[in-house]
Amino acid sequence: MKTLFIGGIKSGKSMNAQEYILKNSLFKPTYLATTEFVDAGMKERVDAHIQNRGDDFVTLEEPLKIYEAIKTNKNPVLVECVSMWINNMFYHGLNFEDMQKEIKQILELEQTIVFVLNDVGCGVIPDNKLARDFIDASGKLSGLIAIGCDEVYHTIAGISTRIK
């Protein structure tokens, strides 16, 4: 079973994805954290996520090779979050084709996987190439993930509505 929670930043998608995977798991799920610390503000956000999930998850940190991290894991996996992973991939010089290949491999796995992804496609077109590349990659990968998922939830103001 594959599920996607997509929504704006601070929409509540992470909390709803956590509740969803806990409710639908027979075993303690793995929380695959993709964020790399880039500044103190990011550390505060990560610390808040750690507090929110408490001891309900086994935490695994992997900023780049998420397929490798998931493929041997027997328990359900919450990928938090795909947007930060895309950011990391660009930062480390990888391209859209690398990301697309990795996501396709993940979608072929048998494990239960819940993806969290920021919906960044509702704004204006940025004035710099890196931001445009990020938005383009995010939009294309969100479509790829959504097609490969059994369920997709769009989250606004803490409310997740099933759209697939």
Rank of each mutant, 00 (worst) to 15 (best):
M1H: 13
K2N: 08
L4T: 06
I6W: 06
I6Y: 01
G8P: 00
I9S: 15
K10I: 04
S14K: 07
A17V: 04
E19L: 14
E19I: 14
I21H: 01
L22Q: 07
N24T: 12
F27D: 14
F27K: 15
Y31N: 05
T34P: 09
E36P: 10
F37D: 13
D39M: 02
A40V: 12
E44Y: 12
V46C: 07
D47S: 13
D47F: 11
A48Y: 13
A48H: 14
H49L: 03
H49C: 02
Q51I: 13
N52A: 15
D55N: 13
F57C: 02
F57N: 03
F57K: 01
T59K: 04
T59Q: 11
P63W: 00
K74S: 15
P76R: 06
V77L: 03
L78P: 11
E80K: 06
E80F: 05
V82Y: 06
S83Y: 02
W85H: 04
W85K: 03
F90N: 01
L94G: 11
F96D: 05
D98S: 06
D98P: 01
D98N: 10
M99Q: 08
Q100E: 15
K101P: 08
Q105F: 13
I106A: 01
I106D: 03
E108I: 11
Q111E: 11
T112I: 08
F115H: 02
F115N: 07
F115Q: 08
F115T: 03
N118C: 09
G121E: 05
G123T: 02
V124R: 11
I125H: 04
P126D: 04
K129P: 12
A131S: 11
R132L: 01
I135K: 10
S138P: 00
K140Y: 09
L141R: 02
G143H: 12
C149G: 04
S160H: 04
R162E: 09
I163L: 01
